[in-house]
Amino acid sequence: MSGGAHQTALLYHLGRTCQTIDELRTTLEMNSRQISDAASGLIQRGFVERVEAGCFQLTAEGHTAVANGERITSGPNGPHKSQRSPRQNTLRQRAWSAMRIRRRFSIPDLITDTALGDERGAANNLQRYVRSLRKAQVIRCLPVRVPGTAPSSPGFPQYTLVHDLGPVAPTLRRNGLVLFDHNSGQEIGL
């Protein structure tokens, strides 16, 4: 059993009365050290209290946890608060740099500037990224399209950069619902 499993077993075994380590050892398949460690973990979570040395009982929170059928796991113990640093030299990062340099661009321009040849679906990837930037009003679609050469081609939309957010490319978060600007640390709703 792992630490989380020991804690879960102890949580469901303890009742309102105080039980000692020796009593617990006879009923649970755990040695004294494992019981002591599991009890420490549950005390940290506020589910168990130590009545006296080596004697434990559930707290009100512990009873609620048992009633809710909670399982103790090794983590995560809370939300990730630190900001993930953006990845370097991705297709989108290169495309963002190209947008800042060109200021006026189409998707084929970005592919020419950034694709190294080993990316899968570079055009689709950039298409989705550009659509999100447009929704966030970071870029603007120009009324004039670049004419295509194929007989039925409607041409390619042209864009211009409206808000230069900075050197680090904004990334999509929460399943594409918001755009995160790493330069200012702010989220832009889409």
Binding site: Q88, A98, I101, T112, T114
Partner: peptide
């Protein structure tokens, strides 16, 4: 010039100023 330089700068993560 600009096409080659912009490609090279974005590929290598260089600082590009105008």
């Amino acid at each position: 010039k600009t096409t080659i330089l912009s490609r090279w700068a974005s590929e290598n993560g260089c600082i590009y100023l105008r």
